[in-house]
Amino acid sequence: MASALINVPDRARRGEIVEIKTLISHPMETGYRRSQLGARIPRDIIRLLVCTYNGTEVFRAELHPAITANPFFVFSTVATESGTLTFQWTGDNGFSVTETAAITVD
């Protein structure tokens, strides 16, 4: 069960820089570890996080092996208009999670 925590301010003034925090549940298995029997544990990581703000991409991160389990990202954007921030994580084994958060700009 994939779950994500997103923290976006509910309200912001136009032109204000807002901080966005995201945390997602994922093991981020590197692919370099071996099991106790010596078999290689296949890689299972998130490859990409993309955040769009009313359809415009505002943040993109490529993830690699050796990034922590349950990756946490903090970034900022300028509040331009009321609308929706959409977060999409995609990764190995068809992993795909999409979450949205609403923001009201005065």
Binding site: S3, A4, I24
Partner: peptide
Amino acid sequence: DDTANPGMLAVLEGGA
């Protein structure tokens, strides 16, 4: 910070 604490992911799942 509840949105930075990875333990909160488990709390969320526990709630479900």
